[in-house]
Design a protein around this nucleic acid. Structure first.
Length: 765
DNA sequence: CAGTGAGCGAGCTTCCGCTTGACTT
């Protein structure tokens, strides 16, 4: 029998470590935390110094039983992560497994390499109770905030809402950005770009130069172009300077989510799920990390790879330091487990994510790129303005050969290129000078990854919670994730060529958005309420401030219950005040104007079923209501947009004696034929312009589908109860009122009764 | 499941951070 039991947090980690430790060691995993505050109530005894009431959640019972059995008669090594949560897990294990805190071996390692693990075994310590207490303070504070604030919202706004230290700040960021966008007024301006060539250049090789001055009006832009007609253009200054570009550090959870979003179009939760698969297959290191550190083993492998692929001059050791507030660095950066594996087998998403991780990791240990940046300033005689041409030439590509990081900003409109050799005093001639109308842009809405980035900058949330936090605020209805079609607009362009100025009007699309996060009316209402009643809690610095207190607890400077008491007093008074204060449950109605048809007031407000617009009633006549569409906000909807909402439901006509109506329901746009035959509109259909013919098509398709769904694929004369049907998620077995999944690889149309009965019997246990 | 918007009120909702499977009709 093995004499030792090592307990880690993750089962994949357990497997790897077991290989390193040899036969005297059994390695098991706790699957994260094994105890938590009681879920039934507050889980904190306020009268007894905030004593936490811990219990083992149902789904952890099995793990705990197994660990208890394994710990019997063995030396236990607690190898949970080296951070606050990991220390707490170790302590909970001592409590639950009945181990003494003093005398139980606690070991830590930051990388899963044989050397690191053997070294850890050589240097055990005991559980650090100060650090554990800092975690208890964190846990208790979060519970107090979440479980005291949420019920205030149920009472004062609407049931089932939630508030918390992390999620409420995430919503606040989105709300404030949205209000900046609503308040933004786009202003037009004219941007001037010239195509020049050197006067002495027979080939007339063109290069671009831009005027840093922007003109506010067409008149000014035109006047400028006219003044250029007979002007002489002379090079005033040529500046050449070398610049270095450095590779980005290896991935953390947050930067991986950002790059996978930008480069691969993956959502935050998709990225995490694919990364989890790679991790479980042993292909990458742990994917929930805030560290940019690489093990010395990985560094050596990087150097070897780079030397093999590109030669030694491309390799350069970089030691990255985290800039993240509150980073705990319990793990390595996210990197391939074996750097020499350049590609893997797997799903397309797995391959692409792995490739991204591999390139980022290897590039981080490559030499910086060297570029020459040239700036040429061109003077215009008779005018103060000067054109500026910039060019960048890569002198040595370095890491750029393998990888370059993407940015959130729109790509520059004109790519910078090679500039001709010119010196001060040279004359240049223009081929064209164009003044193009542009428009100032509102700030961009956050997407998932840029929100994560902002939260990380504020030190709010942890790698393990970024993805779930986004899910939570979407599930609560505070936020929607959506794409928007671009809108068309026209712009003017003036061109000076051949001594005369011509003008034309062009059109472009703008404002196209993909998967952006936008707050809802409820999100805004809740945010405003919290800001009013609980400003200190949703302050951007709240987390950073309490983290300082947790650090004091971890240092042993203050006891955790004293820290919590100091917080709870003022906090609970805020809760009491909020409950006593009358609130405006639905917020204020916003008057949009008068309905041009009736002259009656049109208002937007939150109703029982969510945000809506209303045309007020008068005397006997009832008011008319219409729900707002996803993405429309009470704060920003216009009168015209509101009136358009009353265009539905709309009668298309009659088909086979029954009326056909198109409308918007809870599940999107639908057509209704007669009283109760409903069909959803397809993706390209627009309820506002749908024709009767299309309505008939949709209803017919719907009926055909229903017939198909009700016709079993397989039935058996011997047992009429047994049916194989086609459902939303593919074929399934229906037997005596219950449904059963068909195992992968089985062809449903070839199933026999025996096989069906076997599947039913197998799923019973 | 598909339009609604009066009012009453039982019983329920909720946090953040660690970890993976489970598994729909």
């Amino acid at each position: 029998m093995q004499e030792n039991l090592v307990i880690v947090e993750s089962p994949a980690k357990a497997k790897t470590i077991e290989k390193f430790l040899g036969k005297d060691f059994m390695v098991k995993s706790s699957f994260g935390h094994i105890r938590d505050l009681s879920k039934k109530d507050l889980g904190i005894n306020l009268a007894d110094g905030f004593a936490p009431v811990y219990e083992i959640p149902k789904d952890k019972r099995k793990v705990v039983d197994e660990l208890t059995r394994a710990a019997k008669d063995r030396t236990v090594w607690l190898a949970s992560d080296e951070d606050r949560e990991g220390e707490a897990i170790a302590w909970h294990l001592t409590e639950v497994l009945g181990l003494p805190v003093e005398g139980t071996k606690r070991i830590v390692f930051h990388e899963i390499t044989k050397r690191a693990i053997l070294e850890a075994i050589e240097n055990p310590r005991t559980v650090d109770m100060n650090l554990v207490n800092a975690q208890q303070a964190r846990r208790v504070l979060d519970r107090l905030v979440g479980f005291e604030l949420s019920p205030v919202l149920w009472k004062k706004v609407r049931p089932s809402l939630s508030a918390g230290r992390v999620q409420s700040v995430a919503v606040r960021l989105l709300v404030e950005r949205e209000r900046e966008i609503i308040a933004f007024r786009s202003t037009p301006y004219f941007r001037v770009v010239a195509q020049f060539h050197a006067a002495g250049d027979k080939d007339r090789t063109l290069f671009k130069a831009e005027l840093p001055t922007r003109f506010e009006s067409r008149e000014e832009a035109e006047a400028f172009l006219r003044s250029c007609v007979g002007a002489t253009f002379t090079v005033a200054k040529v500046e050449e300077k070398p610049v270095q570009r450095y590779p980005a550090p290896p991935f953390t959870t947050s930067t991986l989510q950002q790059e996978a979003g930008r480069k691969l179009g993956m959502s935050v939760s998709q990225t995490m799920s694919v990364a989890q698969h790679l991790y479980e297959q042993g292909l990458i290191t742990y994917m929930r990390t805030d560290s940019v550190n690489l093990s010395t083993l990985a560094l050596a492998q990087c150097k070897e790879q780079i030397t093999n692929l590109y030669g030694e001059k491309y390799s350069s050791y970089h030691n990255y330091k985290t800039k993240t507030k509150g980073a705990q660095e319990a793990h390595e950066a996210i990197r391939p487990s074996y750097i020499e594996r350049q590609a893997i087998e797997g799903t397309p998403a797995e391959k692409r994510l792995y490739d991204l991780i591999w390139k980022r990791t290897v590039a981080s240990q490559m030499v910086s790129a060297e570029l020459d940046r040239t700036t040429i300033t061109i003077a215009i005689d008779g005018r103060r303005e000067q054109f500026v041409a910039t060019g960048e030439v890569v002198r040595f590509d370095g890491f750029l050969r393998l990888y370059s990081e993407s940015t959130d900003e729109e790509p520059a409109e004109d790519s910078e290129g090679l500039l001709p050799k010119l010196s001060a005093g040279d004359e240049v001639l223009y081929q064209t000078i164009t003044a193009t109308q542009r428009f100032t842009m509102p700030p961009a809405r956050y997407n998932e990854a840029s929100l994560v980035k902002r939260l990380e900058e504020l030190g709010i949330g942890r790698p393990s919670t970024y993805a779930p936090t986004i899910t939570t605020i979407i599930n609560r209805g505070y936020v929607v994730k959506q794409s928007k079609e671009g809108q068309k607009r026209t712009y003017e362009q003036l061109t000076l060529a051949g001594g005369s100025v011509s003008a034309k009007t062009l059109s472009e699309s703008f404002g196209k958005e993909k998967n952006r996060l936008q707050p809802t009316d409820i999100g805004m209402l809740v945010n405003d309420y919290l800001e009013q009643q609980f400003a200190p809690i949703i302050d951007y610095n709240f987390t950073a401030n309490v983290e300082k207190e947790f650090d004091r607890v971890a240092e042993g400077d203050i006891t955790w219950d004293k820290m919590i008491a100091a917080f709870y007093g003022p906090f609970h008074r805020m809760v009491d005040t909020a409950i006593e204060t009358q609130s405006d449950k639905h917020g204020q109605a916003r008057v949009l104007g008068a309905d041009p048809k009736t002259g009656r007031t049109v208002k937007a407000r939150i109703g029982r079923y969510g945000p809506m617009v209303e045309i007020e009633g008068e005397g006997e006549e009832k008011p008319r209501f219409a729900s707002l569409k996803k993405g429309q906000l009470i704060e920003s909807i216009t009168l015209d947009e509101a009136l358009a909402l009353f265009a539905l439901p709309r009668t298309l006509g009659e088909w086979e004696g029954e009326p056909m109506v198109v409308g918007l329901g809870r599940f999107g746009a639908y057509v209704r034929w007669g009283k109760s035959t409903f069909a959803s509109l397809a993706k390209g259909d627009d309820p506002y312009t749908l024709t009767l013919e299309r309505g008939v098509e949709l209803i017919k398709a719907h009926q055909a589908q229903r017939t198909a769904a009700n016709t079993p694929i397989r039935s058996f004369a011997e047992d009429p109860d047994m049916l194989v049907k086609n459902g939303r998620y593919g074929a399934y077995i229906a037997y005596k009122g219950k449904n059963y999944r068909i195992p992968k690889g089985t062809k449903p149309e070839e199933l026999t009764l025996d096989e069906c009965l076997k599947i039913v019997a197998a799923s019973k246990k």
